[in-house]
Simulated assay, not measured.
Amino acid sequence: MKVYLSGEIHTDWREQIIEGCKAKNLDISFTSANTDHESSDAAGDGLGAESHQFWRDHKSAKVNAIRIQTAIKACDVAIIRFGDKYKQWNAAFDAGYCAALGKPYITLHDETLVHALKEVDGAAQAWATTPEQVVDLLAYIVA
Rank of each mutant, 00 (worst) to 15 (best):
M1N: 08
M1H: 10
M1L: 09
K2E: 09
K2I: 10
V3L: 10
L5S: 01
E8N: 07
H10G: 10
R14P: 04
E15Y: 05
I17E: 00
I17Y: 02
I17R: 02
I18T: 09
I18C: 03
I18D: 03
G20P: 14
C21L: 07
C21K: 00
A23W: 06
A23E: 13
N25F: 09
I28K: 00
S29E: 15
S29F: 13
T31A: 06
S32E: 15
A33D: 06
N34T: 12
T35E: 02
H37K: 08
S39T: 14
A43P: 01
A43G: 01
A49H: 01
E50Q: 15
E50F: 09
E50A: 08
F54Y: 13
R56V: 01
R56T: 06
R56H: 06
D57W: 01
S60E: 02
V63R: 11
A65S: 14
A65W: 04
I66W: 07
R67H: 12
I68A: 04
T70K: 11
A74N: 15
C75P: 09
D76N: 13
D76W: 03
V77P: 08
A78G: 13
F82N: 12
F82D: 07
F82V: 08
G83R: 13
W89K: 13
A91Q: 03
F93Y: 12
D94P: 02
G96H: 04
G96D: 00
G96T: 03
C98T: 11
A99L: 13
A99E: 12
L101C: 09
L101I: 05
K103Q: 12
I106Y: 05
I106F: 02
L108K: 08
H109L: 04
H109P: 07
L113P: 04
H115Q: 14
A116H: 05
A116V: 03
K118R: 12
D121I: 08
A123V: 09
A126M: 11
W127S: 14
W127I: 15
A128R: 08
T129K: 04
T129D: 04
T129I: 14
Q133D: 03
V135D: 09
D136N: 11
D136Y: 00
L137D: 09
V142L: 03
A143F: 07
A143C: 07
